[in-house]
Simulated scan of single mutants.
Amino acid sequence: MTTAYDFTLPSLDGGTIDLGALRGKPILIVNTASKCGFTPQFEGLQALWSFYRGNGLTIIGVPSNDFGNQEPGTSTEIATFCARNYSVTFPMAARSHVRGADTLPLFRWIAQQGGLMARPRWNFYKYLIGRDGRLANWFVSLTSPESHRMRVAIERAILDT
């Protein structure tokens, strides 16, 4: 059976993010954009990363220009924007497609696992992968990283052994 740990992502710095290296740990994957009304969620995502990373949670941002051309920047511009404006230190993938013909294989898998409604319809959809590598939960753009619902889901994923 395929799990999230079977995928890699191109990283913002030109390397590769190997999800297999995170096997057994929960992961929060978020499709991001720098020029979106939801962009301030970077602050909440960074807060989650700072608070839960010691418990094994990894957050990975996946910039995408698929919605409203709200991520037009280069890798350098995206990295600078995230660091300067939101002090982002969690891993960031290279700008990628999360829908359409060129969708990343990971996002195709997420759509298979979560069904039609789980496919990202805008920036800042959030996908929680459990310790077993399966899609545990997903959240629409309107769900704030600081929301009670998201924190409860993350804590369950961390405690699930």
Rank of each mutant, 00 (worst) to 15 (best):
F51D: 14
M150A: 04
V152D: 13
G44V: 08
L48D: 06
R99I: 15
F139K: 01
A136Q: 15
F67S: 05
L116S: 07
A153R: 06
I154N: 04
A79C: 12
K126Y: 11
F124V: 06
F107D: 07
D102A: 15
S34Q: 14
E155M: 13
P145K: 14
T103G: 04
I60D: 01
T80V: 03
S50V: 04
T143E: 10
I154M: 07
D66C: 09
R99S: 13
A153F: 06
G61T: 11
Q113F: 02
Y127N: 03
Y52H: 14
V98T: 01
Q41S: 01
E146S: 13
S141Q: 14
D66T: 11
G115Y: 07
T143A: 09
W138V: 09
M92W: 00
L104W: 10
V88H: 03
L128F: 03
A157S: 09
P63K: 11
R134K: 13
Y52F: 15
G73F: 03
A79W: 03
P105F: 10
S64E: 08
F107N: 02
L106S: 08
L104P: 05
R95I: 05
Y86R: 02
A83V: 08
N69S: 15
M150W: 01
T89H: 02
W49D: 09
M92C: 04
P120N: 07
Y127M: 00
A111P: 01
A118F: 00
F51K: 15
M150Q: 08
I158S: 01
L135C: 05
L135V: 04
W138G: 01
Q41I: 06
F81H: 10
A33M: 11
N55T: 08
V152H: 12
R131F: 01
I158T: 02
S141I: 09
I60A: 03
S144W: 04
G61W: 05
A111S: 14
R156T: 14
R99F: 06
G130N: 12
G37Y: 08
I60C: 00
A33V: 09
R156V: 13
D102S: 15
P40E: 07
A157L: 11
T103D: 10
F124W: 08
Q46I: 00
W138N: 07
R53W: 04
A47E: 14
F67A: 06
A94P: 09
R95H: 03
R99K: 15
T143F: 09
Y52W: 12
T80Q: 13
C36H: 12
A47S: 15
L116F: 06
Y86F: 15
I78G: 02
R131I: 00
R156A: 14
S141V: 06
F42N: 04
E71N: 14
P72T: 10
V98H: 06
R151W: 06
N69E: 14
A111I: 00
F81V: 05
V152R: 15
